[in-house]
Every structure is written in structure tokens, then in C-alpha cells.
């Protein structure tokens, strides 16, 4: 079962894992990925994440459904935050559950690769030098190619 949230509040990784374990049977593998605000060289003051209410949720839902089609997952959970964040804060959580580890590992990577290139979020960094929008990385687009066959 797919569950997606877009929220300003922080998330509790252990509580999310526990909820998924309670709801699902036949779980032999749980993979989690947490993305956090990186403070490059100690210059970052804050980061603001803009999103597109409606489409962001719909796009994450589409990506998660796609993962459930490709791998025999027992469940998955995606949480992505928006709004003002501080260095070290959580940004994104992906949890995948399956009977065996390979599906959970691969699906978590797939979810993050697609999320980074498709989910409508934009990061703006506030540094000691001023504010700037983060550039998209070509490596993110390239990461999608390995899932195409």
C-alpha cells in the first residue's frame, strides 16, 4: 500500500516504521532513506522548499504506484517537507517494505531517483553570501536512465 505526505512538520522515522510494521504482514525487509539539509562548508543559514500543492502530492503518488508495480512491495511511505528548514533538518523520508531485501533496496532507490527529477519542489538557499535557487543537477536526470529498461 502506497502512502504519501507533503507537509511542513518534521517526521519521526521510528514512528513511521512502526506504523508500517503494524499494518503489514510478510515483511522481511525494511529500507529507509532520509534526505537532510546539507550545510556546505558552514555557510548555509536556511533553506526554503517551494512546492506545487496538488501536483506535488499527485506526482509522488504516481511515482510510488509505479514502484509498487515494478517490485513486489508489501508497503511504501514517502514524506516530503516544504517551507523553511534549517541546516541538518530532515527533508524527505522514503520507506519500502518487502518480503526480501532486494525489492526494498531497489524500490527505495527508484523512488528517490524519480522524486528528485519529477516531484515539483524547488530549493532556495539562504547563505552568508545571499539567497539563491539551487540548480538542478544533470546527474539527477541521468539517474533515471538506468530504470528505463
Amino acid at each position: 500500500m502506497v502512502s504519501v505526505s507533503v507537509q511542513s512538520e518534521d517526521f519521526d522515522i521510528n514512528a513511521e516504521i512502526e506504523a508500517l510494521r503494524r499494518e503489514n504482514y510478510d515483511v522481511g525487509a525494511i529500507v529507509t532513506f532520509t534526505g537532510t539539509v546539507r550545510d556546505i562548508g558552514g555557510t548555509l543559514k536556511s533553506m526554503t522548499l517551494e512546492h506545487y500543492p496538488g501536483m506535488t502530492e499527485a506526482e509522488l503518488e504516481r511515482i510510488a504506484q509505479e514502484a509498487e508495480k515494478k517490485w513486489p512491495l508489501v508497503g511504501s511511505r514517502v514524506i516530503h517537507r516544504y517551507g523553511a528548514l534549517a541546516p541538518g533538518d530532515n527533508i524527505v523520508l522514503v520507506i519500502t517494505l518487502s518480503s526480501h531485501r532486494q525489492a526494498a533496496f531497489e524500490a527505495a532507490e527508484f523512488l528517490m531517483d524519480f522524486l528528485k527529477s519529477k516531484a515539483p519542489f524547488w530549493k532556495k538557499e539562504e547563505t552568508s553570501e545571499g539567497a539563491n535557487w539551487v540548480d538542478a543537477r544533470e546527474t539527477d536526470e541521468a539517474a533515471l536512465k538506468r530504470w528505463q529498461d
Binding site: G35, M55, H80, L115, W133
Partner: peptide
Amino acid sequence: VAIFPPVTGG
């Protein structure tokens, strides 16, 4: 119609 630069979430 939404118009935006390449996305940078995650």
C-alpha cells in the same frame, strides 16, 4: 498551466 524551472527536491 504550470511553468517552472527543473525541480530540485529530495
